[in-house]
Simulated scan of single mutants.
Amino acid sequence: MIDIPSFMLALGVGNIAFAVLMAGYTHGGPPNPGLRLWMWARFGIGVCQLLGWSRPYLGIPALNSIEGAGWVLAVSLEVAAYCMFFGFERWRRVLVPISALALGVVFAAASAGAPVSSVSMLVASIVALFAAAMAWILLRPRSHRVSLLQRIIGANDGLFAVMVALWAASGVSSVPMGQGAAQEGVFMAGYLLMIVNGFGFLLLCKQKDDLEMTRLATTDSLTGLPNRHAFLERADLARQAALRMQQPLALVMIDIDHFKQINDRFGHATGDEALAEFARTARGVLRAHELLGRLGGEEFAAILPGTELIGARQAAERLRLAVRGATVITSGTSYTMTVSIGVVVLHPGEALGAALARADHALYVAKNGGRDRVETGMPQPQPQRYALA
């Protein structure tokens, strides 16, 4: 048999300790509303568990309703933290009325003089519903990106919801089997909840922060395209894949014509808008599996897997015409961009740097030939072979 009062005391102290740990983790860092709400939820749950432990010793009747209301508020905050973390937009419209209704029911039952056991079972039912909601948020079937960590936390929430619901049902059942066993199950599930969810939510936040840092390190902030380092890294992976599968791979170099004149005539803000407009236009022309990146300034590049030279040139022409049809809006006037494009197809075993040099030379020819045009790069020079006399 579990010593329930001691277990409740340990859970209360543990949850408050987690809340203090989270306060130290978030102090001085970037604002994280979801983690802050979760911290207060853990603190509230810990306080409620300490109230439950102290209630038999203090003998204050009002503690029953205060503890029940505290549980409703705490689990509501925890649900809100998950909603904020996963980007639910309308969660307040649903959660706030439900939480207010649950609080009203708990206070009404306590004010009507309901027995402590009945109020406890009512609160347990509400907590089970909220825990089930958290499990659904983490494991929702329509989500295609449920990580293993989410599954572990969600399964733990689901287990806790089931155990609390069984405890609530045992309180109103006439079968004498087992309210004590159900209560022990709840406290064991609560212990797992404290450990798994305590570290789990923190790890979820860290994963999200790490992904954001990776995105910032590999993405051009102005256009949203891969930056030079990320593009070259992915382009080389595409080159290796094309070599393994013996498929063609085209490389396209693109330069916005007279970009300096755009900045000088309309200002750098218009120049930035021109870059962003080009990126939007190019993404609309290229296929989903084709990679576009910004190499720097007004220079861009694209990798077209499975594309021969004729198809790559046709794609480049479509891109050129689409850019001509796009309009950059300035203050009072509009500006039409043009681009010069160089196209090559990588030879088997050719290094990415060599292909980039050939594409860049084709781009140079396009710009010298009048701009607003597509040029094809020269074939890779083959080593000379000398016959023996």
Score class of each variant (00 low, 15 high):
Tyr335Phe: 14
Gly180Thr: 07
Pro61Ala: 08
Ala351Ile: 00
Ala41Trp: 03
Gly104Lys: 00
Leu58Trp: 08
Gly306Arg: 13
Arg215Cys: 08
Ile4Lys: 04
Gly377Pro: 02
Ala279Asn: 07
Phe300Ala: 10
Glu184Cys: 05
Tyr57Arg: 14
Ala354Asp: 11
Asp3Gly: 01
Leu51Val: 09
Val162Glu: 15
Gly271Met: 09
Arg93Glu: 14
Asp210Phe: 04
Ala238Gly: 03
Thr376Ala: 13
Val252Trp: 01
Ala274Phe: 01
His289Arg: 14
Ala302Pro: 14
Asn64Gly: 10
Phe300Ile: 06
Ala217Gly: 03
Gly180Cys: 01
Gly178Trp: 02
Phe199Leu: 13
Leu237Val: 08
Ala189Thr: 05
Ser334Gly: 03
His268Ser: 07
Phe130Ile: 04
Ala274Leu: 01
Val328Trp: 08
Ala312Met: 09
Thr218Cys: 04
Glu184Met: 09
Pro248Thr: 12
Arg358Trp: 03
Gly180Ala: 10
Pro31Leu: 05
Ala17Gly: 14
Arg151Gln: 14
Ala315Cys: 12
Leu11Tyr: 07
Gln246Lys: 08
Ala181Cys: 02
Gln384His: 07
Gln150Tyr: 05
Leu139Ile: 10
Tyr335Ala: 05
Leu73Asp: 02
Ala357Arg: 12
Gly24Ala: 05
Ser118Thr: 15
Ala357Phe: 05
Asn32Tyr: 10
Ile126Met: 05
Phe107Ser: 01
Leu346Gly: 08
Val164Glu: 13
Gln261Arg: 09
Gln380Ile: 01
Trp91Val: 07
Gly332His: 13
Gly377Leu: 06
Arg313Leu: 12
Gly68Thr: 00
Ala110Lys: 02
His144Cys: 05
Ile341Trp: 02
Ala132Tyr: 04
Ala235Gln: 09
Asn64Ile: 15
Ser173Trp: 09
Ile254Arg: 01
Thr223Ser: 13
Gln49Trp: 10
Leu139Ala: 05
Trp53Lys: 06
Leu222Val: 03
Ala326Gln: 14
Asp236Phe: 01
Leu73Arg: 06
Ala112His: 07
Leu249Lys: 00
Ala276Val: 07
Val343Ile: 06
Arg318Met: 07
Thr218Arg: 13
His144Phe: 12
Asn156Thr: 13
Gly154Thr: 12
Leu51Cys: 00
Arg36Ser: 11
Gln179Thr: 06
Val328Phe: 12
Ser174Val: 10
Ala387Cys: 00
Ser174Gly: 15
Trp40Thr: 06
Leu291His: 07
Pro305Met: 10
Ser99Asp: 03
Ile137Gly: 02
Phe259His: 07
Lys260Gly: 10
Phe86Leu: 15
Ala238Thr: 11
Leu346Thr: 13
Ala108Val: 06
Glu308Trp: 07
Gly28Ala: 05
Thr327Leu: 14
Thr270Tyr: 02
Leu101Pro: 06
Pro115Ile: 12
Ala279Phe: 04
Ala276Met: 11
Leu249Ser: 00
Arg283Glu: 14
Ala41Gly: 12
Glu298Asp: 04
Leu11Ser: 09
